[in-house]
Design a protein around this nucleic acid. Structure first.
Length: 651
RNA sequence: GUCGGCGUAGCUCAGCAGGUAGAGCGUCUGCCUUGUAAGCAGAGGGUCGCGGGUUCGAUUCCCGCCGCCGGCUCCA
């Protein structure tokens, strides 16, 4: 029999008979232990089933239950099993698609009756029983006609639609995967059998439009996850619990930071502690950018629609704008005609107006405007969510007007600010570079230059970045930044965007050294993104336990008994005079209870004040983390606070 | 906007086959004068999200609306 050569990741090579399956090869030529742990394999980089025969010389990599990619395969297996169970338990339900997502999988079903939480429990139980049956996944290939016949006979109209699409793209054959008596077509690969999946947990049901289009039928999406090991599942569920505890929507009101009221959906009420936090962030950022050549500006809230016609928002963005009736218009006119004004959803147009108020020389470029004006966007009601998706918010927004040749340096300067800011709160970040989309404005030469400048700036930062070809805005390429919080979750924060369209629309210009007019380029950028969203991220990142410089209350003095109150009051006043945010707890409670209160409020320092402290003129601070710093003179505590409460930027 | 779930005291939640509600914590008052995560006792607190319908009677059943939660869509 003809031999082929299989190279393994360690560089070694083994011979095998042509036609040997991957599974056999692993068992015979590598080891039975590995064969048992194997889920899928990679042949010359392509993911394949273990049943795949080895046809020619190849590189082989075995993916076991330790591999994250294998876990993804197992979750896809789980989606198949779940779909089969749903169709068994709820006959008449039609299947659609069921991909894996981060941390799990889902499957979309078409069924008139909604699935209830009890249904989910039932399904989950049956899925895990099915997994225990150890049914092999069997791959087969059929012609497109056969596949169509098969799914038409089952009345699976969504599957039929997908097959038609695949055929239209030129496919002649389709792969089917069968486990038990349930069949689905699927690119694969799949694991060897249901047992390999491990354990499945169903999480929730949600509506989803077929193919994401609101005009299509509404499907029911069941979300679930799977892990090879029950312990890993439990760890995952614990992580979800932990994330829930840190949920800014829960901590915000608890810590007196912000709240919402149904009279103003999507607009936060900033409570005293939250206002303090906002103020700290605002001051730090404002000082930082003013030190870096930015100028603060403030512009109106309400604008005549002609501004939005100029900017293009009236045509493209009106849905999201709060329109305002002009009381001086004729009341008998239709409402739309009376709405000649709008609250601003973005700052850029009004900044362009400022730029245009005087003639500009190349000598003053870059011109950098900074503002934190409130913005209003009429987001669809169903999208509102805590502070992360709101209708009123403020960005640390800047628009920079500069010459083409200044872009690289300017973007580099923005990176440096970001590094400083994100670094100060311990948020690592990565970048996504989005280049020219198909539908775009401007010539290729312009895009070449724009993308070149951004790429050059990006490379100079030595940051991790990935390319997203075609994802740029229609008027310019952009860089998006993701930060990763302490729970490993990613958040998209801010964007650096080049804009070549606005200067045209607003007829922006500067006089160059050649004494003629030129178009500047505009950079849109924010670092916090919006204060609202940034605060939400910080709350969850720190679990509400802010470092002293951010904490709304930096220290609380707690008295042991009533006779210490006067000293505590006096000491608190002294600390406040030095600029620290300090409160005094004079309540008639036991020390333990007061400490507990301060801990619940997650205050960085709780200072015990009793006989010893009064006598020696000191305090006994304890950190939120629990560390007892013991009795120290007040000056020592002032020095400590001074250090930890200092702004890490913009001081 | 849309699908599903939810809405009872400041918070967490119980309750009601239809007869206008209850606990713990917090709040207030009193006692205790307290040393590193909850002292004791008493009191107060609710238009059971809002509006309509059915009913002798609705927090409970029905309809509409509002808000929140999980998705989808959207997200310069």
């Amino acid at each position: 029999m003809e031999q082929i050569t299989v190279r393994l990741p360690d560089g070694s090579e083994r011979q095998a008979a042509r036609g040997t399956s991957v599974r056999e090869f692993i068992a015979e030529k590598i080891g039975p232990g590995l064969a048992k742990a194997a889920v899928v394999a990679r042949l010359d980089g392509e993911m394949v089933d273990l049943s795949r025969p080895l046809e020619s010389d190849t590189r082989l990599e075995v993916l076991t239950t330790k591999s994250p990619e294998a876990l993804e395969i197992a979750r896809h297996d789980a989606a198949h099993v779940m779909a089969s169970i749903v169709q068994r338990l709820y006959p008449g339900t039609q299947v659609t698609i069921g991909p894996t997502v981060e941390d799990g999988f889902y499957y979309d079903f078409f069924r008139e009756q909604p699935f209830t939480p009890e249904d989910l429990e039932k399904i989950e139980k049956a899925v895990n029983e099915e997994i225990a049956r150890d049914l092999p996944f069997v791959r087969s290939e059929v012609s497109a006609e056969e596949a169509l016949k098969l799914f038409e006979s089952k009345g699976e109209r969504f599957k039929v639609e997908i097959i038609h699409d695949i055929v239209a793209k030129g496919a002649k054959t389709l792969t089917l995967y069968t486990h038990g008596d349930w069949v689905d077509f699927c690119l694969g690969p799949h694991g060897p059998s249901t047992k390999k999946i491990g354990v499945v947990k169903l999480l929730n049901v949600a509506g989803a439009y077929w193919r994401g289009d609101p005009r299509n039928p509404m499907l029911q999406r069941i979300y679930g996850t799977a892990f090879f090991d029950k312990k890993e599942l439990d760890a995952y569920l614990t992580r979800i619990e932990e994330a829930k505890k840190r949920d800014h929507r829960k901590l915000g009101p608890q810590l007196g930071l912000f709240a919402f009221h149904e009279y103003a959906p999507g607009s936060a009420f900033w409570l005293p502690n939250g206002s303090t936090l906002l103020h700290t962030l605002h001051e730090a950022m404002r000082n930082l950018v003013l030190d870096n050549g930015y100028q603060e500006v403030k512009t109106p809230q309400l604008f005549n629609k002609r501004l939005w016609e100029t900017s293009g928002h009236w045509g493209k963005y009106r849905e999201n704008m709060f329109l305002v009736v002009d009381s001086e218009t004729d009341p008998s006119l239709p409402l739309e005609e009376r709405c000649t004004q709008s609250l601003k959803p973005m700052n850029c147009p009004s900044h362009h107006l400022i730029y245009r108020m005087t003639k500009r020389s190349y000598r003053e470029l870059p011109v950098r405007y900074f503002t934190t004006d409130p913005l209003h966007r009429n987001e669809a009601s169903g999208t509102l969510s805590g502070l992360t998706r709101v209708r009123q918010f403020a960005q640390d927004d800047s628009h920079i007007y500069l010459m083409q040749q200044q872009i690289t340096e300017e973007v580099g300067a923005i990176f440096n600010l970001m590094k400083l800011v994100y670094g100060s709160v311990g948020l690592p970040f990565t970048a996504k570079f989005s280049t020219r989309p198909e539908m775009r404005l401007g010539e290729d030469a312009m895009w070449d230059k724009a993308e070149g400048s951004l790429r050059e700036a990006l490379e100079a930062t030595k940051l991790d970045w990935e390319l997203q070809p075609g994802d740029g805005a229609f008027y310019g390429p952009k860089i998006d930044f993701d930060v990763t919080d302490s729970l490993g979750r990613k958040w998209q924060l801010c964007t650096i965007q080049l804009d070549y369209a606005a200067p045209e629309r607003f007829d922006l210009s500067y006089i160059g050294s050649d004494n003629s007019e030129h178009r500047p380029v505009v950079i849109h950028r924010a670092i916090y993104g919006s204060f609202e969203r940034f605060v939400a991220i910080l709350i969850e990142h720190f679990g509400g336990a802010f470092p002293a410089w951010l904490a709304p209350v930096q220290a609380r003095l707690v008295t042991v008994a009533e006779r210490h109150n006067a000293y505590a009051r006096q000491t608190g006043a002294r600390l406040r005079k030095l600029g620290f945010r300090v409160e005094v707890d004079e309540a008639n409670e036991k020390l333990g209870a007061k400490i507990r209160d301060a801990q619940i409020q997650k205050i960085p320092f709780t200072c015990v004040v009793g006989d010893k402290e009064v006598e020696q003129g000191g305090v006994s601070p304890r950190r939120y983390a629990g560390e007892d710093l013991k009795l120290m003179p007040l000056e020592s505590f002032v020095a400590l606070l001074g250090q930890e409460a200092a702004l890490p930027y913009g001081a």
